[in-house]
Design a protein around this nucleic acid. Structure first.
Lengths: 197, 197
DNA sequence: GTCTATAGTAGGATAGAC
DNA sequence: GTCTATCCTACTATAGAC
């Protein structure tokens, strides 16, 4: 890795942390530069503007998220279906403990999206991709006869997706809830309810 | 209402809308003053600083939220329990359609809270109050024998509370989901799951 | 109670040297 | 590739007149 690439990555890393901790607006380029160990104008060699730096960071996160929920359908069976569904939630809970910055940054992009169509469009893509993954899993559950085909598959899938999403937000506030128990309850409720209807 | 009170309220109303639309940082006191029809320094007659205006607005919202979920336990019976629980969600969904500003503002205070203990403390109070209300309702459900006492009451209550909360966030992004169907599914899943265990 | 005028500060961004 | 120096703009906040 050359000097150029090194500084570039360092700026991104520092910006990621500072944006998460202080927010986009309250983080000035001067502060980032100081932390990186370069001067403010040097940042302009790598990024056209502060907005472009923020936007570039989003693109990087965007790529990461898309590989977040991965399910290997070949592994799914009627007997291990619930277990696999539980693991999806557990994994997310464990990861959010590890990187406390991610959600702080991400919720800021959500706010930006309310005023910027470019971000909004990409976030909506993420969101619908996200909802679709849960929906796919539930459709497969019908095939496996874990769920009745008359059960309200879509509502069940969206419910779990929305809960999954909000666990991250709650962890952000530092609430010490038993998230795994909540997720377990949700998964069991949804699956059992679908067998009885 | 005197002139003084009138201008004071007008500043708050204008600030509420502009903060929601553009965000705290991108809304200057000059913009608020222009919209109100006074000059910028005039705002300092009513508020010590911009931060104090933001903080005051939060206090007002804080009071509103606390009266959000109201349940009259005398009205609850085994036969109408699910119906009443459904109404709590429906009401929130309908109200968020009406005031699109509330969530946009509120999510900004959430971000502030991550860096300001004062906000964090109050938000945590709101959140635990909120979780407790759902928990109380579910404990009452056990009394009514709508739910088995061995059912995981706490997890069920927290699950519904978190879903309830995130419906607002999703509506903020403009996602056109069938929120009432999702809420209905959640309520039914949770109650039915609890009877069978 | 609201104004005009202005101080003081800090931000993003650019020009040009090395 | 990184620097110094500097510009422009916009903001919060204050002083003091009316």
């Amino acid at each position: 890795m050359g000097n150029r690439e090194q500084t570039f990555q360092k700026i991104l890393e520092v910006a990621y942390v500072m944006f998460a901790e202080k927010g986009f607006e309250k983080t000035s380029l001067a502060m980032i530069a100081a932390e990186v160990g370069i001067s403010k104008p040097a940042i302009y060699y790598y990024f056209q503007s502060k907005d472009q730096l923020i936007s570039f960071l989003f693109e990087e996160l965007y790529k990461e998220i898309q590989y977040d929920i991965v399910v290997d359908y070949k592994e799914l069976s009627p007997s291990n279906f619930i277990e696999k569904l539980l693991k999806i939630g557990y994994k997310s809970i464990d990861e959010q403990d590890k990187d406390p910055y991610f959600n702080k940054i991400f919720s800021q992009y959500l706010l930006l999206a309310a005023r910027d169509d470019h971000y909004m469009q990409q976030l909506l893509e993420l969101q619908s991709d996200y909802l679709a993954r849960f929906y796919d899993i539930f459709q497969y559950a019908v095939q496996l006869e874990v769920l009745d085909e008359n059960a309200n598959i879509e509502a069940k899938a969206h419910m779990l997706a929305m809960l999954y999403d909000n666990i991250g937000n709650f962890m952000l506030t530092g609430s010490q809830l038993n998230y795994k128990a909540i997720w377990r309850e949700a998964v069991h409720s949804v699956i059992q309810g679908g067998k009885d209807e």
